[in-house]
Design a protein around this nucleic acid. Structure first.
Lengths: 226, 226
DNA sequence: AACGCGAATTGACCTCGATCAAATAGCCGG
DNA sequence: CCGGCTATTTGATCGAGGTCAATTCGCGTT
C-alpha cells in the first residue's frame, strides 16, 4: 500500500462529494490539509472492526464495503460506498475505534483525511461541524433503512425498492447498469447471491429483465405495486 | 397531551443523561432553555415517520420505541429508548424530517428540546456540537449493531448477546430483571414474541432460566459459547 | 470469433422463524 | 385470596431464504 499526496483530479473527486458541497474553498482546503491517497488491490482490507483508525476515508475510485464479521467467519455487509463517498467518520467520536471492517471491492483508490485535523477544524468552523453532522445523519439513516427493509420486506420487494430508487421520476420505462457485480448488490441487500438471482426472476413478471449488469424496467407501476 | 415546563426532577433526569455529562452548567442550561415536558398515554404516537419535527426528545420516564411501518401495516422496531435517553436528534440535519415514527410504551413523560435553539448553540459552542456528534454516532452504531445481528445471528444467539450485555464483568452467575415486557424485547431484537419465547427455551440448556421478567444466568461461559 | 474463467442461474433440500391457534402463566385489582 | 385479562408459552404448519451442487451465461482476453 503506497501512500501518495492528493493530485488535482483526486481533489476534484473529493470536492465533488456531498460533504464539501456547502463548504467554502478555504474550509475545504483546510480539511484536505495533510490528506493522503492509498491504492488498494481487490479484497484489500482497509481497517478491521474495533481497530484504531486516525483517518476519515473517501473513495476516489473503485468501491468499498463496510462489514461485520460473525464468529463463524461469515460477513454481513453494513454499507457499500462508491466513488465520491466519505466513510469511517464515526470512529472519531467513538474512541477512534472502527465500528466495522472495510474492504475494497476491485482496485480502489482511497483518500485519507486526518481525523485529528478534522476534529480540530470542526471545533472552530461551525460549517465543518455541520457538514460532519449531516454526514453522520445520512449514514445513520442508511443503516436504519437497511434494518427496516430487512425486517419488513421480502427479497423481491427489496430488489424492487432498489430498482425504483434508480428510476428517474416520471419514467414508466427505464434501464440502468448496475455499478457493481450482482454479488455486491446481494450483500448490500442482506441476501445470498442465489436469493438475489431468484428475486430478479420473481420480478420478471413485474416487467423487469436482466442481462448481465443491465437492468430494464418495462413497467414502473407494476414494480411499485410489488 | 399537556405541555408543561421542566421541573427540577425533570432537569435532574435530563442532566443525568450521557448527552449532558461533559457539558458545563452554563451550556446545559442554555440547551434546556425553552424545553417543555409532555405526558403520553401508552401507545401514544409522538411523531410519524417523515413528519416535520422541531424538537429533540428525551425520555423522562417510561419508554419510547422508534419504528418503521410497512405497507402491510406491520411495524419494525428500530430502537427502544429508556429513561434518560435522547432521541429524534437526526431530524435536525435531515431537513427536519423524522426518519422513523415514535411511540410511547406505557405511560411516558417526554422532554422536548427546541431544535432551532440546539442547532444555534451547536454553532457557537464546540462542546455542544461535540456532544451532538457523539450522540449521532452512538445511535448510528446501535442501528449497525442491530443490522449486523439480524444478518449474522440466530434468534437464540441474539438473546444470548442481549443477556451478556447485561451481565457485569467477572460474574459467572447473575440475574437481572427485564426493564420492559418481553414483547418489547422481541421487537428490539427483530423477532416475533413467540420466537423470543422459543429462544429463551433454547437457552435453558445453556443455563438461562426465566420467570416473568426475571432472567437468571447460571453459567456465563456456556452463554458465551452459544 | 473463440476460449476460458468467474459470475450468475437453477435445482434440490433443509432450517429458521413467521403465523395462527390453543393453553397456561402471571400480574393487577377487588 | 380470587378472578379476570393480557402476556407468554407451546403446538402445528408453512414459506422464505440459506446452503450445496451442477449448469449456464457473459465478460474479457487472445
Amino acid at each position: 500500500m503506497k501512500t501518495l499526496r492528493l493530485n488535482s483530479s483526486d481533489r476534484t473527486v473529493l470536492l465533488g462529494s456531498r460533504f464539501f458541497e456547502k463548504l467554502s474553498a478555504a474550509a475545504s482546503n483546510a480539511v484536505l490539509e495533510g490528506a493522503v491517497v492509498t491504492n488498494h488491490e481487490e479484497h484489500d482490507v482497509l481497517f478491521h472492526q474495533d481497530e484504531t483508525v486516525d483517518s476519515v476515508f473517501c473513495v476516489l475510485s473503485g468501491l468499498v464495503r463496510l462489514y461485520r464479521l460473525g464468529k463463524d467467519g461469515r460477513e454481513a455487509d453494513i454499507a457499500v460506498f462508491p466513488k465520491g463517498e466519505l466513510f469511517g467518520e464515526s470512529a472519531m467520536f467513538l474512541g477512534n475505534r472502527a465500528t466495522a471492517s472495510a474492504r475494497a471491492i476491485g482496485s480502489s483508490t482511497i483518500a485519507r483525511l486526518d481525523s485529528r485535523n478534522l476534529r480540530s477544524l470542526a471545533e472552530t468552523h461551525p460549517d465543518i461541524a455541520q457538514a460532519l453532522m449531516e454526514l453522520l445523519c445520512r449514514h445513520g439513516q442508511m443503516a436504519e433503512d437497511c434494518l427496516a427493509e430487512d425486517r419488513l420486506l421480502t427479497a423481491p420487494q427489496r430488489v424492487a425498492n432498489y430498482i425504483l430508487g434508480h428510476c428517474p421520476d416520471g419514467s414508466t420505462t427505464f434501464s440502468f447498469r448496475l455499478p457493481f457485480q450482482k454479488n455486491v448488490l446481494a450483500g448490500k441487500l442482506g441476501l445470498a447471491p442465489e436469493a438475489l438471482s431468484r428475486a430478479f426472476s420473481a420480478l420478471r413478471r413485474s416487467g423487469v429483465t436482466v442481462k448481465g449488469r443491465m437492468i430494464e424496467i418495462h413497467d414502473r407501476n407494476a414494480l411499485e405495486r410489488f
